[in-house]
């Protein structure tokens, strides 16, 4: 498994003062799978994602991506090599239109941006792929609306669109349905189902129905430790998991 994994994490540790937020986590994500990470609040899920993306430096352990050690690599370098992320708290460019937001992400992968003369908003090399991606997530009708004026659910879709626009090899999705209503959640679930098989995804999500429906494999994180990894059926049957997490009524 480890050899052909797209992402391979070994012995990852992150401490904040006396608190160990990530406690020796091993994790493999295979090409093409949706790998979900579940766990109670405070289990260190977002901290883990931040380390994978490069926003936080781990105290120990290694992160290998596509056969290369990226542990010490800065965020933007990892992004260029294909690690894209979305945020639990929406991080879009509020003053820009939806299309601008996605075009910005397309531009990130279109070589360097030390180009000072031609208007970027008239650049078909950026705008056309951006429109296509907005269509892919179902936001094409809202292309010219400022991101700040989009509904919460639409902003979440935009987050995903921006991550997709960087042509990632691995998508890190941090609670894509956070704060969503029922209808919005269903739309997001359909979007994720559409991405299944097309993208490699590491998914953090609280909605267990969604996780068990979509994930190929699941890792359970409790107090920073990965206590189990397996198929949804195996996880459902795992006694430790039931005791530590699923059993306490959260599922």
């Amino acid at each position: 498994m480890a050899t052909d994994a797209l992402l391979s994490v070994k012995g990852l540790v992150k401490k904040f003062g006396g608190l160990t937020a990530t406690d020796g986590v091993d994790l493999d994500v295979a090409e093409g799978e949706i790998h979900a990470i579940i766990g109670p609040n405070g289990a260190g899920k977002t901290t883990l994602i931040a380390q994978l993306a490069g926003e936080l430096a781990p105290n120990a352990g290694t992160i290998a991506f596509a056969g290369r050690d990226v542990t010490a690599m800065p965020v933007y370098d990892r992004a260029r090599r294909g690690i894209a992320r979305s945020y639990q708290i929406t991080q879009v460019f509020k003053g820009f239109t939806a299309l601008d937001n996605v075009a910005m992400a397309v531009q990130a992968q279109a070589g360097h941006s030390f180009r000072f003369w031609r208007p970027a908003r008239d650049d078909r090399e950026l705008r056309e792929p951006a429109r296509a991606i907005l269509a892919r997530v179902g936001l094409d009708a809202r292309a010219d609306v400022p991101a700040a004026a989009l509904a919460h659910g639409e902003q979440r879709q935009l987050e995903i669109a921006m991550a997709l626009a960087t042509q990632p090899r691995l998508l890190l999705l941090d609670e894509p349905m956070a704060g969503m209503g029922k209808e919005e959640s269903e739309r997001m679930t359909r979007l994720l189902a559409k991405l299944k098989g097309e993208e490699t995804i590491l998914l953090i999500e609280h909605d267990m129905d969604v996780v068990f429906a979509l994930a190929d494999r699941i890792t359970v994180l409790v107090y920073g430790r990965a206590i189990a990894t397996g198929t949804p059926d195996a996880i459902r049957a795992n006694a430790d998991v039931r005791a530590a997490y699923l059993g306490d009524g959260d599922a």
């Binding site: 965020v75 820009f96 601008d100 031609r118």
Partner: peptide
């Protein structure tokens, strides 16, 4: 005017809007 509307200008404005996001998109801000 040319500058702020160019690709470079968009990146600079992106840094104003949300620098963290820019880095995550792959820009050495």
């Amino acid at each position: 005017r040319r500058l702020v509307n160019s690709r470079f200008g968009m990146v600079v404005q992106g840094c104003r809007e949300n620098e963290r996001r820019m880095r995550a998109l792959g820009y050495p801000t």
